[in-house]
Amino acid sequence: MKNITDYYPSKYCADGVNCVAAGIYEYEGLYFTSISFEQEPEYGEHEDASDISQHPLEDILNKFGVYVQDYFEYDIYYGSKQCHLEFASTDIENIKALRTILGRHVYCDPEGKLVIE
């Protein structure tokens, strides 16, 4: 995963959704954030945004204690490389920790270990 940045879907403007920190939102006790990124086929990831690779995504979910809340498939264009995912947790600290990957390079090394540089 590269070019990891914030993603702000229009649904965050809905009634009851509160911005509680930079890029972190809350609704009825659930905290969430959305990111945009590109996959890297040279690291075994898929090329197209319509098919997000299991790794490093699954490793990120496990490391930060979050889950995928929304996939934003309506924002994906055929052949697009730009992926958008919403991550959620009932613990804001998990979301804060996840956001530390913004602007970094995330991949699995040849042994399958998660690398965040």
Rank of each mutant, 00 (worst) to 15 (best):
M1K: 02
N3M: 06
Y8C: 06
S10D: 06
S10N: 09
Y12C: 09
Y12H: 03
C13T: 12
C13Q: 15
D15L: 08
G16N: 11
V17W: 04
N18T: 13
C19F: 14
C19N: 09
V20I: 15
A22F: 11
Y25A: 14
Y25H: 03
E26Q: 11
E26F: 00
E26A: 12
Y27T: 11
Y27V: 11
G29V: 01
L30A: 10
L30M: 11
F32H: 06
T33H: 02
S34P: 06
S34G: 01
F37E: 00
Q39Y: 00
E40H: 04
P41K: 10
E42S: 03
Y43T: 02
G44A: 07
G44Q: 01
E45W: 03
E47M: 12
D48P: 01
D48Q: 09
A49T: 02
S50E: 02
D51I: 01
D51Q: 10
I52Q: 05
H55E: 15
H55W: 04
P56I: 13
L57Y: 08
L57F: 05
E58L: 06
D59C: 01
L61S: 06
L61G: 04
K63R: 12
F64P: 01
F64R: 03
V66C: 14
Y67W: 06
V68G: 06
V68T: 01
Q69I: 00
D70M: 04
Y71R: 12
F72S: 10
F72A: 00
E73L: 13
E73M: 14
D75R: 06
D75H: 15
D75V: 08
D75Y: 08
I76C: 09
Y77F: 14
S80K: 14
S80I: 12
S80G: 13
K81Y: 10
Q82L: 13
Q82W: 05
C83M: 02
C83V: 13
H84N: 13
L85E: 07
E86A: 12
S89N: 01
S89E: 13
S89L: 15
T90R: 15
I92Y: 04
I92Q: 11
E93M: 13
I95E: 07
K96I: 15
A97T: 04
A97K: 02
L98N: 14
I101T: 01
G103D: 12
H105S: 03
H105C: 10
V106A: 05
V106P: 03
Y107F: 13
Y107D: 00
Y107M: 05
D109F: 03
P110A: 14
G112C: 05
K113W: 05
L114Y: 08
V115P: 02
V115W: 00
I116A: 05
E117H: 04
E117L: 07
